[in-house]
Amino acid sequence: MSTVLQTNNLTKQYGSLTAVHSLDLSIEEGQIFGLLGPNGSGKTTTLGMILGVTNATSGSFNWYGQIPSPEARKKVGAILEKPCFYPYLSAKKNLQIVAKIKGVTEDRIAEVLQEVGLFDRMDDTFETYSLGMKQRLAIASALLANPPVLILDEPTNGLDPQGIVEIREIIQKIAASGKTIILASHLLDEVQKVCTHFAVLNKGKKLFQGSVKDAISGQTIIEVGSSNMNMLKAALENLSGLKSMVLNGSHYRLEVEPEVTMEYISKTLMAQGITPTHLNKNEGSLEQEFMKILNQHA
């Protein structure tokens, strides 16, 4: 597996404010990489630097091990912040400009517009588009040169639920085709549904980088309820593999080792004459992990 993007001590300062603080990121081929962080954490600034439109204060980065160049950018399809097109031009003409810049033929314009469901509207001007359509056009534009790498910055920002679902389906389709995707978002749910790897940024610093699967499977939550909560409490306290336990309404919420199964808990309780009335297992979510990471560094 080869490294698509590598940043070394990448730093951006605006006056006294350090928007990105010596960032080291490494993204491998085929990853769907989520760049997470609250608003203002430096996600867009980072993407701006690796796309050659924001001048880094110090540090460096490279694409496929090579010094950044316009040629390297032609192999990346990217949207930064919001879709940027000529408002008085039709979708088709806007994509013709992109095709000319990237030096590819215009054959794929119809194809990518079809892919995002804008084929019927390709002769309408960009300014007449709804926000959802603008986002979809931006994705079509990023796909135009069939690049191995896509960068999407908050692609569902400001969309209604239906629009969000549409964009997510498009992203999942692209992900399935084997492209490397860098997805900046503050929507954890979105990243969890799509991404394989993620990094957490806050105030310009990287707090964490790892795989989504590991982060989620690290935590298993089991909820147990019974008619006799006192007996239940006593029994659970001696359970092996228990990490923590809190009373949550009518049941206990246990954080346990991944090896602890519901069957095991059920058997243990039965052996002590307790019948569980409520038994439920929750896989961890990225949201919990994310809050944990932010709190650890707070």
Binding site: P70, V76, L80, Y86, I101, G103, S141
Partner: peptide
């Protein structure tokens, strides 16, 4: 203003171009 200049650069146009 429309940030199309930025998008041109992102798409792979050089500043000289």
């Amino acid at each position: 203003q429309h940030k199309t200049l930025r998008q041109n650069i992102i798409d792979g146009m050089s500043k000289v171009e």
